[in-house]
């Protein structure tokens, strides 16, 4: 099999496009890990619910999925806050008493089982509400092809997806870097007890982090929905990859996850091209293993 240069270029572009989505999903997961010190195994379900809410909003209002996406993301973000307040907060409070504010919640079996349980619950809920059959959300934008010089063409939907992903990541980065709330989030992630002692209400920071994390996952689900199908277990298919992105980038590191998202998107598509599509799914794990072998703390591990 001879690979044409144009095919390589095509796969690089497609890889960067999907990489942006991996970045968005991974960034949310890594923020939960960095700030709240917990592994959210239900992260994929927020992505799934985002897509279903977009589907429902589109069917009810007749709007375009790209227009309703922000609404769906905000709705899911609010669900995230609710879960934090109802389920996680009592556990933080109890553990704070024992450890004096420096707990590592991700080692706690109750948090692990709680998020796994949530994941199962949400998949079942989606089955009951929307049924098992994969749905598609039509958008006229998937039909419009944009031809770029050299003879390649991509659907407008994919191009919009990429632009939204990059713009979202840039906005998130700026938010964390320059705003007071963003700095408080970074401070909490770097040293939670010191954050409390400068006057940061860390419970509020946890709420904000849950909102951002789940809303980002939902946004990814929404903007991918017109390209792929929507089905109850779609979250389970992405959560493993999201963890691969988080670990490869360095646990808790936002920039690391963005880089790892693009790296894995690229590697998958090029791997699919050179090795055959049957190897595409395993490429992400190979990248993770290589990175961990060379740098056990991940690409930007230890930095936040």
């Amino acid at each position: 099999m001879i690979v044409q240069p144009i095919e390589v270029i095509e796969q690089v572009i497609l890889g960067l496009m999907i990489g942006g989505i991996y970045g968005i999903i991974g960034v949310g997961l890594t923020m939960i890990f960095g700030v709240m010190r917990l592994s959210n195994f239900a992260h994929g379900e927020f992505y799934m619910i985002g897509a279903y809410i977009a589907f429902t909003l589109v069917s009810v209002t007749g709007g375009d999925p790209y227009i309703v996406a922000p609404l769906a993301a905000i709705a899911v973000g609010l669900i995230g806050i609710l879960i934090n307040k109802l389920l996680f907060k009592p556990l933080y409070e109890e553990m704070k008493e024992i450890k004096g504010g420096a707990a590592f919640y991700f080692q706690d079996l109750r948090f692990i089982m709680l998020t796994i349980g949530l994941s199962i619950l949400f998949v079942d809920l989606a089955l009951v509400l929307w049924g098992p059959i994969p749905l598609s959300i039509p958008s006229p934008l998937t039909e419009v092809r944009v031809i770029i010089p050299g003879g390649l063409s991509f659907s407008l939907a994919r191009i919009i997806t990429f632009i939204v992903a990059v713009a979202t990541l840039a906005a998130l980065y700026t938010f964390l870097k320059v705003t007071k709330t963003g700095k408080a989030i970074r401070a909490t992630s770097q040293n939670p007890s010191a954050a409390m002692l400068v006057g940061i209400n860390t419970y509020k920071i946890y709420d904000i982090t849950m909102f951002l994390s789940t809303a980002l996952a939902a946004l990814a689900g929404c903007i991918l929905a017109p390209i792929y199908n929507v089905y109850p277990t779609m979250g389970l298919d992405v959560v493993a990859k999201a963890f691969v992105v988080v670990i490869t980038g360095g646990m808790g590191n936002v920039i690391g996850s963005i880089l790892a998202g693009f790296l894995i998107g690229l590697a998958e598509n090029l791997g699919g091209l050179f090795l055959g599509t049957e190897y595409k799914q395993v490429v992400a794990f190979i990248i993770m293993i290589i990175v961990l072998w060379l740098k056990p703390e991940g690409i930007l591990g230890g930095k936040k």
Partner: peptide, 14 residues
Amino acid sequence: IIHVPEGRGLFPEM
């Protein structure tokens, strides 16, 4: 009341 804790309580990546 400002508490400068044991271990200094700095934000190392700032």
